[in-house]
Design a binder for these strands. Structure first.
Length: 551
RNA sequence: GCCCCUGUAGUUAAAUGGAUAUAAUAGACCCCUCCUAAGGGUUAGUUACAGGUUCGAUUCCUGUCAGGGGUGCCA
């Protein structure tokens, strides 16, 4: 049930009918039915007369007049306004249906099936298992997890996946770093090289390792020792990632290992496949992929002249695995801005392999700047070190972090205000929304306890106050907000929407009372309050932000 | 140099090519004998610049200027 879309559809049909009557065989451009930004321009508005002015060689207002004279709309009033818009005003009954529709659907209100069950693999965060997660991962986590939930609500079948880079150069670096620290810990006089990881987490691992195994591995060959150290530390790192993400309310369906691609031979296989398709060539002993065919500025190396594949090879194999081997309809990646050069490369590879590149959606998110008191913050207040996801969550509640990272379109730079995120006032948008929800609960509770008034189903509802109408129009938009957010892969739409719902509710709260009104009014308003609660709850549930009943 | 992102009130942002460009915030003032003042109201203030596309441009195109990111046989 989606009353907004139904009404648009209905208007569309009657306009189309009138248009074909006027057209006299002339081909007319598509028109739109939309909800005007300003309600004085109607509940719905159509631009048919404007867009077809040229084709019909008539003035827009004349065309509008001709259309309107052919309309038969008993449930709506129609007027022609401005340059030639046809505006529709819905009647009382529409608002009543909107509210009862929300209450009937409850937790399913806003759910749709535009996804038609298509299988989506959403890969996000995928932080290197060689150290802690940074702020970019935190943004990617909030966006990815929220987007996954939106797509599910819109009827897609979604799997969340974390790609574990447990092979290749990063792991070699981890082995090197652990090895140096191990030998240092046991009295070896050696320097840690520039390219190794310098973090405390490495030293910490070694302390524990030495406690358990002592000097046992000193006599091993360097390679065996590194392997043993990696075997020890890597699972601990992955467990830490999993634990920190869980604290952030993110749980994955799959933890996909890069090493599985190597072991299964899929990495070697992909080079052979690309070669077979004629997408590669050899130069100076290295194998290149022809990515320039896809807008890249130069071709990229697949296999180095020393025979070692670059990161691209397992990555291509991984995407091939997603879209072909596992057969997902759509694969979504969420990357930091530093990966934008990656897009033409992966598209070129997939196109060469005969995969429709529109099935791969690579979302690029721009940088996050942490701000406190107007100043850029680089280091944590408590630890004095770079702020990680884990230390961020020590300072900022999960609700606030998840909400704030979804405040803006992924594709824009984000200033994350640490002071504001902690603040428990109306300036903080999370509290503003949660407070609105708590208010809806409180009204329902207080009226039941003090006046014995409960919400009766089937009671005839009636809304006349402007604040009521504004709020109902907002509530009726949830299904479209979800489908739009899904279509645009943009969870920030939902954050903005729920903030607007909260604002409309607070205004309603101030202007209209429930308690003490006569029964007809009280019942209608009680229903509206309950419907508002449903909408805020559903939206916050998608974001995995709490909707407290009292604050 | 080349590629990507962004230029909108003092600040942070909104606006499938639509009507008088929205909000929040900072400032000034007002509203609790009233379901939660973690709220509401009043007030003032904005599309970087120059062209183009059209009934109509914050939105699309070109150029200029400014800020951020990238530009490895690193990942």
């Amino acid at each position: 049930m989606n009353i907004t879309q139904d009404t648009k559809q209905q208007i569309s049909e009657i306009i189309s009918a009138a248009m074909s009557d006027i057209a006299e065989g002339v081909e007319l451009p598509a028109f739109a039915v939309e909800v005007p930004a300003n309600a004085v321009n109607g509940d719905f508005s159509c631009n048919a007369a404007l867009v077809s002015a040229k084709a019909l060689k008539r003035k827009p207002r004349d065309i509008a007049q001709a259309i309107v004279s052919r309309l038969n709309t008993s449930s709506m009033t129609v007027e022609i306004a401005g340059p030639g818009f046809i505006n529709f005003f819905v009647g009382q009954e529409w608002f009543e249906r909107a509210v009862s529709g929300v209450l009937a659907a409850e937790g399913d209100y806003g759910r749709s099936n535009i996804g038609e069950g298509k299988r989506v693999l959403l890969e996000f965060v995928s932080a290197n298992p060689t150290g802690p997660m940074h702020i970019g991962n935190a943004r990617g986590g909030a966006i990815g997890d929220c987007l996954a939930a939106i797509l599910q609500f819109a009827g897609y079948t979604v799997e969340r996946e974390f790609y574990v880079n447990d092979a290749g150069n990063q792991i070699a670096k981890l082995g090197l770093s652990l090895d140096i620290r191990y030998r240092q810990a046991l009295g070896g006089k050696l320097e840690i090289p520039e390219e190794a990881y310098h973090g405390d987490d490495i030293i910490h691992h070694i302390e524990n390792f030495v406690k358990t195994y002592g000097e046992k591995y000193l006599n091993f060959s360097e390679n065996d020792r590194k392997a043993a150290l990696v075997d020890y530390a890597l699972p601990l790192n992955i467990a830490t990632l999993e634990r920190d993400l869980k604290k952030y309310r993110i749980e994955y369906d799959n933890w996909f290992r890069e090493s599985a691609l190597h072991e299964g031979g899929q990495v070697d296989e992909i080079v052979r496949l690309l070669d077979e398709k004629g997408a590669t060539y050899e130069e100076n002993g290295a194998i290149f992929l022809k990515t320039t065919a896809f807008g890249d500025e130069k071709d990229r190396v697949l296999v180095r002249s020393n025979g070692v594949p670059t990161y691209l090879v397992p990555d291509i194999a991984y995407h091939y695995n997603k879209l072909v081997t596992r057969g997902f309809d759509i694969a979504i990646d969420i990357f930091g801005a530093d990966h934008h050069g990656y897009v033409p490369r992966m598209n070129a590879a997939l196109a060469a392999l005969g995969v429709d590149t529109s099935r791969l959606k690579m979302l690029i998110m721009q940088m996050v700047r942490l701000v406190r008191a107007g100043e850029t913050v680089k280091l944590s207040k408590r630890s004095g070190k770079a702020i990680t996801l884990s230390t961020l969550l020590d300072e900022v509640p999960v609700d606030a972090a998840r909400f704030f990272f979804n405040l803006r379109d992924a594709n824009t730079h984000l200033d994350f205000d640490l002071d504001l995120a902690i603040e428990e006032t109306s300036q903080n948008p999370v509290y503003y929304v949660q407070y609105a929800h708590a208010r809806t609960c409180n009204i329902l509770k207080r009226l039941l306890e003090e006046d014995g008034l409960t919400l009766k189903s089937g009671y005839p509802l009636k809304y006349t106050h402007e604040a009521e109408l504004v709020l109902i129009r907002k509530l009726s938009a949830l299904p479209e907000e979800i489908t739009e957010a899904a279509r645009a892969f943009d969870p920030s739409r939902l954050t903005r929407y729920v903030t607007e719902v909260a604002a409309a509710f607070h205004k309603f709260y101030d202007a209209c009372r429930v308690k003490g009104e006569d029964e007809a009014v009280a019942q209608s308003r009680l229903a509206l309050v309950a419907a508002t609660g449903v909408v805020i709850r559903n939206a916050l549930a998608i974001m995995k932000v709490d909707a407290p009943e009292r604050m």
